[in-house]
C-alpha cells in the first residue's frame, strides 16, 4: 500500500476527527495543525500506527507570529517515515502568555536539544522536558531573542558612535 497524503489525512481524521485542522499541502508536503494539548497523542499515533510509522523526527523548531493574538508561538515538527519515504509537517500553536507545550523527548531522544534550542530562542516551555535550559545562548540571558519584538539593528542608523566600523562619529 502506498502511503499517500490522502491516506494519512484520512487516517488522522478517522482517529481525531475535527481536532486536526488547517490541512494543506504546500509544495507537496502534508501540513496540519493540532491543538497543543493533543500534540503527544497525535505524534504517538503517527509513530505507532501500523500503516503510518513516522519513526524519525527530522526537525523541530519554533516560529513567532506576533499578529496572531492568542496563538503567537508555533512549534513545527517535521516527521519522516523512512521506509516509505514520506514526510509530514505538524504544527502546534500556543499563546505567548502561557507557552506550555508537551515535550516529545519521551518519543524521540533527538527532540531533547532541539526543544532546548526552541526554548532558548522562543521561550516555549516544554512540559516534562528532563533538562530545559538554554543551550546556545548564555545562561544569564533574560529574554528570548528570536521573538519578533527584537528587531535586528537598523543598518542605516547614525546615532551610534562606531567609528571603527565606519559609522557615526565624524561622518
Amino acid at each position: 500500500m502506498v502511503l499517500t497524503n490522502e491516506f494519512i489525512t484520512q487516517k488522522l481524521t478517522e482517529k481525531f476527527g475535527e481536532t486536526i485542522t488547517n490541512i494543506e499541502e504546500p509544495y507537496g508536503l502534508l501540513t496540519f495543525e493540532v491543538p497543543k494539548e493533543m500534540n503527544l497523542k497525535v505524534m504517538q499515533f503517527l509513530h505507532d500506527e501500523q500503516d503510518l510509522q513516522f519513526r524519525f523526527l527530522t526537525d523541530l523548531c519554533g516560529v513567532h507570529y506576533p499578529d496572531q493574538t492568542g496563538r503567537e508561538l508555533a512549534v513545527v515538527y517535521h516527521l519522516h517515515n523512512m521506509p516509505e519515504n514520506v514526510r509530514v509537517r505538524m504544527k502546534v500553536f500556543t499563546s505567548i502568555q502561557q507557552p506550555d507545550v508537551f515535550t516529545a523527548t519521551k518519543l524521540y531522544e533527538s527532540a531533547n536539544w532541539q526543544e532546548r534550542e526552541t526554548y532558548d530562542f522562543y521561550g516555549i516551555n516544554f512540559v516534562g522536558h528532563p533538562n530545559l535550559k538554554r543551550i546556545l545562548n548564555v545562561d544569564e540571558m533574560d529574554y528570548f531573542p528570536m521573538r519578533k519584538e527584537y528587531p535586528l539593528e537598523d543598518q542605516t542608523r547614525i546615532d551610534k558612535d562606531d567609528e571603527m566600523f565606519g559609522r557615526g562619529g565624524s561622518i
Binding site: R55, F56, L57, T58, M82, Y108, E109, S110
Partner: peptide, 9 residues
C-alpha cells in the same frame, strides 16, 4: 545501534 541512532536523529 541502528534503533538508538534513529531515535537520536
Amino acid at each position: 545501534s541502528a534503533e538508538r541512532a534513529l531515535n537520536y536523529g
